[in-house]
Computed example of a mutant assay.
Amino acid sequence: MIVISRMAMPLLACLLLGLPAFAQGSGDPAERLTYLTEEFRPLNYTENGKPAGLAVALLKALWQEMGVPEQPIHVMPWPRIYRSGQLDPNIVIFSMYRTEEREKFFKWVGPIVGGRLALFALRSRHLAVRSLQDMSGRRVASLRDIAAATKVLGAGFPLTYASRAEHALQLLESGRVDALALDEFRFRQTVAAVGFPPDAFEAVLIMSEDSLYYAFSPDTDDALVARFQRALDAIVQRPIYRNLINFYIN
C-alpha cells in the first residue's frame, strides 16, 4: 500500500488539479508566493517559451532589489487566474487593473504603468457616446472577468462574451456587435495581431483611467506587501524603470 504523507497532500492536489504547487519550506515569504500571469502584451506574455514583458522584467527587478532569487511564473488563462487570486492563499496576479470594483478584493503593489478602459467602435459607424447610458439597446462584446467588462456590467448592460480578444474584434468588425469593451493595451495589440487597419476603429468612450498593479491575495501579510512596494518605489526612481517603459511601451 502506498502511503501519502500529510506534507505531500497539497502538492498532490495541485498536480491532480493542474494548478501550480505553492512553494514550500523557503525562509523568505516572497518565495512562498505563487506568481500568475496571462498573455497580455506588452506587459506580460510568452516569448520563446518563457514569460516576458514589462511587468515580468519589472518583477525580476523587484526580486533582485529584495534579495530574492527568481521565482517560477505561471502563465494561465485570465478567468482561471482571477478566480485563483480570490480563493487561494499566497497568490500574486499581474498585470491587473486596480479599479474601484476590485479594490477590496486584493492587496496592491504598483503602479506598474497607467492604462485606460474604453469602448471601441468602427469609425464608419460614427457612434456618438457620451456615457455608458448611451449604449442602451446596443450590443457590446468583451472578455470574461476583465476590468472593462466589469465597468459595463456595473452600468447594468448585458455583454456578448468572446473567448479571445481576436474573436471579440472580429465580432465588432463584422457588425455583429456595436462596440467592444477593452483596455487600450489589449485593443491595440489585438488589432495588430489580426491585421485590421488601426484607423478603422476609434475609442468612442473612455470609461476610466486606471493603473495596472501586482495584485496579492487578501491573506498576504501586510509587511510582505509593503516590502514589495518599497522595492518598486526605489526602482521607479532609477533609469531602469524609464528604460523598461521605453522598450516595452513607447
Rank of each mutant, 00 (worst) to 15 (best):
E47N: 05
P51W: 00
A52I: 04
A52P: 15
A52S: 12
G53S: 09
L54T: 01
L54A: 00
L54V: 12
V56D: 04
A57W: 00
A57L: 03
L58P: 08
L58T: 08
L59F: 01
L59D: 02
K60A: 11
A61P: 01
A61R: 09
A61W: 00
L62R: 13
L62I: 09
W63N: 10
W63V: 00
W63R: 11
E65K: 14
G67S: 07
G67P: 14
G67Q: 07
V68G: 02
V68M: 06
P69I: 15
P69F: 15
P69Y: 15
E70C: 08
Q71A: 09
Q71C: 08
P72I: 09
P72A: 05
I73N: 01
I73K: 07
H74I: 04
H74A: 13
V75Y: 06
V75W: 03
M76F: 07
P77D: 12
P77I: 01
W78Y: 10
W78V: 06
R80F: 12
R80W: 04
R80T: 03
I81K: 03
I81C: 10
I81W: 07
Y82W: 10
R83Y: 12
R83P: 01
R83I: 04
S84D: 09
G85F: 06
G85Y: 05
Q86A: 09
Q86D: 05
L87C: 10
L87N: 06
P89W: 04
P89G: 04
P89F: 10
N90W: 00
N90H: 13
I91T: 07
V92N: 02
I93G: 03
F94C: 04
F94S: 03
F94K: 03
S95D: 01
M96I: 02
M96P: 01
Y97M: 09
Y97G: 11
R98K: 14
R98C: 07
R98Q: 12
T99P: 13
E101Y: 11
E101I: 11
R102K: 14
E103Q: 14
K104H: 12
F105E: 14
F106Q: 08
F106Y: 13
F106H: 02
K107F: 05
K107E: 12
W108R: 05
W108P: 15
V109W: 05
V109M: 03
G110L: 01
G110T: 08
G110H: 05
G110F: 02
V113L: 06
G114Q: 11
G115P: 11
G115A: 13
G115I: 11
R116E: 09
R116Y: 08
